[in-house]
Design a protein around this nucleic acid. Structure first.
Length: 278
DNA sequence: AACCAGGGAAGAT
DNA sequence: ATCTTCCATGGT
């Protein structure tokens, strides 16, 4: 098994990156976390001085974790514009992953109106039944394999999303993905939303996580709660547009940062409540 | 316009 | 312990 290491700084953290809602194929291991992408696996171990990445394809995962981008500079620009405070660097270890577009599209159609444990379980079932066996894990299946009936996806527990998934596999091609990769944000969003099951929010997640378009601000329930007082009587789609007008190319980073902060706040709250009961 | 379509975690009582 | 809410989209 090949390994590479990244020195510790404030601009990468495994849990912050994996647990902020952008990826679903990951879990804890004995010493750290593993993440799966396409047909590859990477385990990330915190060994004190640095993070150690165990994987067969170093270049793939350096790109996957967006290590070619300078996050010190990105967060610096965001601080300069007053969108981010250095008082609390909680969340500054988030990186916007560069995920496979097909995998991202299917994952986020499954994610709609759903919660993370079930999203993970549905995606894992798809990989187990259609992907290739790599011993300790299964690959994300290719489009040919994904062409299955609505009933197939129903039986995996996809619920009413089953027909979206079945339709998607039939109607999208790798040629479409090539074309999409060359489009700008607005044109690509429009194209994505032509598929059944992809509305504005899911499209924005795909734009950000599957195509690395950072001028999008996915408004989910957490983001909505954060901004509902600042933007009263504003539906999520409209709120998203206003937020992009404000944050521009930094939107995706600010969105992930605020999402993580809001959820951490909730988790800290739960811990406190548990302690109070004792 | 209001409701429905899985399902199960998480919140509320 | 059990009841209710939540989640994002498209169709009726």
């Amino acid at each position: 098994m090949k390994k590479f290491e990244m020195p510790k700084n404030n601009y990468f953290d495994t849990l912050e990156t994996l647990d902020c809602g952008q990826v679903f194929r990951f879990d804890k291991t004995e010493n750290g976390y593993y993440v799966l992408s396409e047909n590859k696996r990477c385990e990330i171990v915190d060994n004190g001085d640095c993070f150690q990445f165990d994987c067969e394809d170093e270049n793939f995962f350096k790109n996957y974790f967006d290590f070619q981008s300078d996050y010190a500079k990105i967060w610096g620009n965001i601080v300069d514009k007053g969108y981010y405070s250095t008082d609390n660097d909680f969340g500054s270890g988030i990186r916007i992953l560069r995920q496979n577009p097909i995998e991202t599209i299917f994952s986020f159609v499954i994610s709609q109106n759903n919660h993370i444990p079930r999203i993970k379980s549905i995606i894992e079932s798809i990989c187990k039944s259609l992907g290739d066996d790599y011993g300790s894990y299964f690959s994300f299946p290719n489009l040919e394999k994904l062409k299955q009936s609505e009933d197939f996806y129903k039986n995996l527990g996809a619920g009413y999303r089953a027909n979206f998934l079945s339709d998607l596999a039939k109607n999208i091609s790798y040629a479409d993905i090539d074309k999409m990769s060359k489009m700008g944000t607005d044109e690509l969003r429009k194209k994505l939303m032509e598929f059944k099951g992809i509305g504005r929010k899911v499209a924005d997640c795909i734009l950000l996580f599957g195509f690395h378009k950072t001028d999008v601000f996915p408004v989910d329930t957490w983001i909505y709660k954060i901004f509902k007082d600042e933007y009263p009587n504003t539906p999520p789609d409209k709120m998203s547009k206003l937020l992009v007008e404000k944050y521009g190319d930094h939107s995706g980073f600010v969105q992930q940062y605020l999402f993580y902060q809001k959820r951490s706040e909730k988790l800290r709250g739960n811990t406190r409540n548990r302690n109070e009961k004792r």
